[in-house]
Design a protein around this nucleic acid. Sequence first.
DNA 1: GCTTGACTTCTAGTAAACTCTAACCAGTAT
DNA 2: ATACTGGTTAGAGTTTACTAGAAGTCAAGC
Lengths: 125, 125
Amino acid sequence: MYAISQLSKLLGISTYALRYYETEGIVAPDRNAQGERVYREADVEWLRFVLRLKETKMSIAQIKQYARLVAEGEHTREDRLQLLETHRTFIRQQLESLTTTEQMLDYKINFYQSHIMKKSLQSQQ
Amino acid sequence: MYAISQLSKLLGISTYALRYYETEGIVAPDRNAQGERVYREADVEWLRFVLRLKETKMSIAQIKQYARLVAEGEHTREDRLQLLETHRTFIRQQLESLTTTEQMLDYKINFYQSHIMKKSLQSQQ
DNA sequence: GCTTGACTTCTAGTAAACTCTAACCAGTAT
DNA sequence: ATACTGGTTAGAGTTTACTAGAAGTCAAGC
């Protein structure tokens, strides 16, 4: 059980963001007697997954859509599957793009380093 | 040599974006007698690299900074190297994050598929 | 009893990255 | 000659994802 400020620290996101996710229907914490948000372990796990989706470039709109399907229950399983498969495809594209770009950077970095090396050799002579 | 609309199609980005990149100092095409932008092959290659940086989550501000260093010439090589190395580290983090998330999705997709399979088996009986 | 601190809601503001509109111009087709 | 096409600029508007401010509630400590 976490208060909003505790969860904010735990997840490394702002309390503003946590409230925003709630208004967007992405998370629905309990409330205590004072009306304060109380996040359970299940909310924490869900939010960790949400942050993974965000890191891998899923938009808030899409995450919201997925959250809505989960909340709607059993009969949305096929839709959820579809959504996750689409995102997996997107992730695989990103992996390709990152690998290619990493290689380009390796090449450029080697280029710069060899030039800098030449320069420092020159300055030694 | 490409007109803006041609390059837009070639790169799959809008003419608005191309003009925006120019105002940000990221690209500096030639102009013809009518004052229209003329992009050379070198501009195209540079923009392809810029788009790679964007795909891998480099901000326009950072790209702008790198472009400025390139334009400034020889004495900025160390800074450029630094910037590219920092981005390579970031790319490696993204690769890790994507791999982990892909595995989570594999798991969830298998889960949904096995449930759907059960369901369709039930409906066959 | 009053202040402090952590929360609440509502609403406005912000940063990033475009995206669009308006007014204009130059070359081509009818 | 006129309309159309495709370009130009300056500047306003849009979308996304927060971020911040104002005003209020409530329990705890001095």
